[in-house]
Design a protein around this nucleic acid. Sequence first.
DNA 1: CAAGAGATCATCT
DNA 2: GATGATCTCTTGA
Length: 206
Amino acid sequence: MNSSKLSLDFYLQPTLKVAQQILGKYIIHNVGRYRLVGKIVETEAYIGPYDLASHASRGKTQRNAVMFEKGGKIYVYLIYGMYYCLNIVTEAKDYPAAALVRAVEPIEGIEPMWHNRYGDLKYDPENKKKIISLTNGPGKLCRAFGINQSFNGLDLGGERIYLAGGARVRAAEIAASKRIGVDYAKEYRNKPWRFHLKNNLFVSKI
DNA sequence: CAAGAGATCATCT
DNA sequence: GATGATCTCTTGA
């Protein structure tokens, strides 16, 4: 795989573009003596101060402050008291926007991911159902990658966690659809701001 | 397979 | 005091 780190300028582009172009890219988390790598296969865009689905729609708060930073950081928050969600902050400083990473395909470090998700359950690479369930959802992938609140605000230009990859995915390989779980967002709930790789087994929902 | 309920708590009002 | 960018388990067809 091409493991050159993405330039920080990449994240300053419009969120819809970033959300689509990080599909197929690799997210790399260096932890101890090994690294966890996943290919991003599903994302959602949360864009600006008026997007009613976005945490930023009611202004800057302690929780969402990172969304207002210059693109190229990660925004991590706790949802439903139990799960973390990972976002890639986009666009210019003071314009709150981010791409939620909803699903990845495990590439490297699958066994540690298994233990992060399933505890002491014996690793079974033949159990396709459980392998797919490792990272086919925003809360699941954070658990598999060991991502928690302490990652909030980390810079993707650093060595601990970053995105890498080469070839751009062709538009014909990308499907757009409504975002998941934002029925409260009035006229914004039907925006086609969710993107996923067609025919990928690790997408959370078809 | 689909639908529904419960878990669980930091954050915001 | 209410809620949520989710997940797992159970029930029932």
